[in-house]
């Protein structure tokens, strides 16, 4: 059993804080982020933007012809929360911190963080834009208030 398969005494998978970069259908997403490009899947048959997590075929027309296309990086906060407890040691020094559901202008929604402002200042409906946070092996899309 690898370290990532570790589980707690209640049988739940131990939390981790790194993305699963080997996910086949998500490779372009992570590759493009390294170049500071936020992309989403779009169906070439019917034009639908895919929801996350990524998948091989369009959920609307079931076509397997799709590609990762750049988006504006602009979006709106659908909802948000403030964590007062750290489920992973990496976040112990960050509480309280924001996690938001960000609806991109093109439609797809991401779980992400609104940063650069205190968590109590985040609001539902707030306009946000993407910023890129580089880590050693990957880049995370995060969001800051627009303008």
């Amino acid at each position: 059993m690898s370290k990532s398969e570790a589980h707690d005494k209640r049988g739940r998978a131990a939390p981790r804080n790194e993305p699963f970069l080997a996910e086949v259908e998500a490779q372009p997403f992570w590759d493009n982020l390294k170049e500071h490009k936020l992309t989403v899947q779009q169906c070439n048959a019917c034009g639908t933007y895919f929801n996350f997590p990524p998948q091989a075929m369009c959920a609307k027309c079931l076509s397997s012809d799709n590609e990762w296309v750049p988006v504006s990086g602009k979006g709106t906060v659908y909802s948000f929360v403030t964590y007062h407890r750290a489920w992973h040691p990496a976040y112990q020094d960050q509480i309280p911190y924001n996690v938001s559901l960000v609806d991109l202008d093109e439609g797809p929604r991401l779980v992400s963080n609104v940063i650069d402002i205190p968590p109590e200042d985040v609001q539902v409906g707030m306009a946000v834009e993407v910023v890129f946070e580089d880590h050693e092996n990957y880049t995370l899309p995060k969001f800051k208030p627009s303008g």
């Binding site: 589980h7 049988g11 739940r12 998978a13 939390p15 996350f52 992973h88 996690v99 779980v111 990957y138």
Partner: peptide, 23 residues
């Protein structure tokens, strides 16, 4: 604690949530 040997169970979308501190 339950001493029965088990296996880790997931909700399935963790890897699209946990990198942003969402658990």
């Amino acid at each position: 604690p339950d001493p029965t040997p088990g296996y880790p169970i997931r909700s399935g979308d963790e890897h699209w949530e946990q990198p942003w501190g969402h658990f």
